[in-house]
């Protein structure tokens, strides 16, 4: 029954035009970035390597598919949560707003399973979005720019990774990025459980992400104890796979914190939905 309900929930997601809005926006954004890099990529790279270019010259294919994919991920990973929340934030509250939640509850399935099926359907949509991002960012960039060594720009220097050592990093990076987006999906579904309209959970999710990101960015000691526990702090952990050496311990910690957030959000949603008065 759970599997059938997951299938139904996924069909519901696919039948909503807003689900395609995110995919469409993602496609257009990536195409714009690729076009910009094709036209003026050299000056963008020069802006970044300018500190060194007085004494050093970077020879070889600096602008390549790997670099473009990295820039795309770096730019979009901040905005994709909005696209995820746009769909997942509506999953329970949308039913409440339309009044279909009561019909849903009449099915021979527990409320816990209803929430779980929505989580899994949301997770599948998020997975599809992440894979689509990967195909466009990596595939299209490689098709247009070809492959090559990757220059990764950190605030304290540059790491140049050889071409044959990059693909696995992207694979692992996408997996962590997916976990980050899954946390956003879980948060929005959790908020959706307590809301009666669609907009509230979507806006609240984005507000929380913005608030936590600002707290994480502020170099104020008072927030230092709080920062490691904010899920937004770990949303950029995918980037750690592009460091040399890879800080596996810190990635592991990030994965644990993101998983704990997911478990908390799902648990709260289940408890909240089981207690929810849907008769009124």
């Amino acid at each position: 029954m759970l599997v059938k309900n997951i299938y139904n929930e996924f069909i519901k997601i696919l039948s909503k035009p807003r689900s395609y809005l995110g995919i469409g926006a993602l496609t257009i954004l990536i195409c714009i970035i690729i076009f910009a890099m094709k036209v003026d990529g050299n000056s963008i790279v020069s802006f970044v390597t300018a500190s060194f270019e007085q004494t050093l010259s970077f020879n070889g294919k600096v602008i390549n598919g790997n670099l473009i994919a990295f820039i795309i991920l770096q730019m979009l990973i901040v905005h994709i949560p909005l696209l995820v929340a746009l769909v997942t934030g509506d999953l329970i509250s949308g039913e409440a707003a339309m009044g279909t939640i009561r019909m849903l509850a009449t099915k021979p399935i527990s409320r816990t399973q209803i929430v779980l099926s929505k989580f899994i359907a949301g997770a599948l949509y998020t997975l599809f979005l992440t894979i689509w991002l990967g195909i466009l960012a990596l595939g299209l960039s490689h098709l247009i720019f070809g492959s090559g060594d990757l220059i990764v720009l950190n605030s304290d220097g540059i790491v140049i990774l050889p071409n044959n050592d990059i693909l696995w990093r992207y694979g692992a990076g996408f997996a962590v990025a997916y976990l980050s987006l899954l946390t956003v999906s879980s948060l929005s579904i959790c908020l959706s459980t307590f809301a009666e309209n669609s907009i509230g959970p979507i806006v609240s999710t984005m507000a929380i992400i913005i608030l936590f990101t600002i707290i994480g960015t502020l170099d104020v000691t008072v927030f230092d104890t709080l920062k490691p526990y904010l899920f937004t702090t770990h949303m950029a952990s995918w980037r750690s796979y592009f460091e040399d050496p890879v800080p596996f311990e810190s990635i592991k910690q990030s994965v644990i914190i993101l998983l704990v957030h997911n478990i908390i959000f799902i648990s709260v949603s289940i408890i909240g939905f089981n207690r929810k008065d849907i008769t009124s």
């Binding site: 500190s51 004494t55 050093l56 720009l153 950190n154 605030s155 304290d156 540059i158 920062k227 950029a236």
Partner: peptide, 22 residues
């Protein structure tokens, strides 16, 4: 043997906003 001047990339460009300061 070359002199490399201090290199500092803005966090907004590097995007590793959670990286601790040296």
């Amino acid at each position: 043997e070359i002199d490399v001047k201090k290199f500092k990339l803005p966090k907004s460009v590097a995007a590793d906003i959670n990286k601790k300061k040296n």
